[in-house]
Amino acid sequence: MSHLMEALVDWFASRGTLSKLAIVDFGVQWAAFSVASVFKTEKFYDLTGSCTFLLVAYLAYKWHNIGHPRQLIQTGCVSMWALRLGLYLFTRILKDGKDRRFDKMRGDPMKFFNAWTLQGVWVFVTILPSLLAILSPRQRPLSTRDYVGWGIWLTGYLIEVVADYQKSSFRNNPANKDKFINTGLWALSRHPNYFGEIMLWFGLYISASSTFSGWEYLTILCPLLDYFLITRVSGIPLLERYARKKWGLLQQYQEYVEKTPVLIPFLS
């Protein structure tokens, strides 16, 4: 009976922490929206999302750290990804001047608010498996599952970093103005950066699942939702439409699309 009561106390404690972290998550988005709406700018939209990942992961670790290496490594993986991507996207938008995703909503307060709110949903859903692992009061010893998950995360992280670096270098070369990239990792996939991102979140789910029991395994829906959003909603579809509009009549681009997988390298 004492073990059951202890388990119930732990369960309610973690649920309470998740609620507080959700409040922090959406509070950050709505506070940032209030500033962005006044200036009608999306320049710190992605940076805010990345900073929210960092903050939520840090608070979860600070509030529930019991000294287990899994908690530190899982927090570190989320933080490394968020810090790198946030700075990359912020630097890019400062150079480009705008994000064309917001062209039709920048002047519409309700649509703009919805975009910030959806970012809050995306942050919380994406990080949820890792939060459950960090918050777990009973950390099992590190196992093969942890190392496999972190190995997949590292592979995906490196793919995303290299792909972003290659594309930035390509765009920074004046000789490539108005051209599309089809070299490096971009010769293997039309969206290798997204492939890396999807891969790393599945990896973190696997390592996090070392602490799971019962319903927590259902958080596999979190990386699956990321995959859906990237491949069906706001990622690849928007970029593919833009590319077809800009280069669709070029023979070279048509050949590139025909021979290069849209996402997973070597998988047509």
Results as ranks from 00 to 15, higher is better:
Lys104Cys: 04
Lys104Ser: 10
Gly107Thr: 07
Gly107Glu: 10
Asp108Arg: 10
Pro109His: 03
Met110Pro: 01
Met110Val: 14
Phe112Cys: 00
Phe112Pro: 00
Phe113Cys: 02
Phe113Pro: 00
Phe113His: 08
Gln119Ser: 12
Val121Thr: 10
Val121Trp: 12
Val121Phe: 15
Val121Gly: 09
Val125Ala: 05
Val125Thr: 09
Ile127Leu: 08
Pro129Lys: 12
Ser130Gly: 07
Ser130Thr: 11
Leu131Ser: 06
Leu132Glu: 00
Ala133Asn: 05
Ile134Thr: 08
Ile134Val: 12
Pro137Ser: 11
Arg138Glu: 03
Arg138Lys: 11
Gln139Gly: 01
Arg140Glu: 09
Pro141His: 09
Pro141Trp: 05
Leu142Val: 12
Arg145Ser: 06
Asp146Arg: 05
Asp146Gln: 10
Tyr147Val: 11
Tyr147Arg: 15
Gly151Leu: 02
Gly151Thr: 06
Trp153Ser: 01
Trp153Gln: 02
Trp153Gly: 00
Thr155His: 09
Gly156Thr: 00
Gly156Trp: 05
Tyr157Asn: 03
Ile159Cys: 08
Glu160Leu: 06
Val161Gly: 13
Asp164Ala: 03
Asp164Tyr: 00
Tyr165Lys: 02
Tyr165Ala: 04
Gln166Trp: 03
Lys167Trp: 03
Ser168Asp: 15
Ser169Val: 12
Ser169Asp: 15
Ser169Ala: 15
Phe170Trp: 14
Pro174Val: 02
Asn176Leu: 07
Lys177Leu: 11
Phe180Met: 14
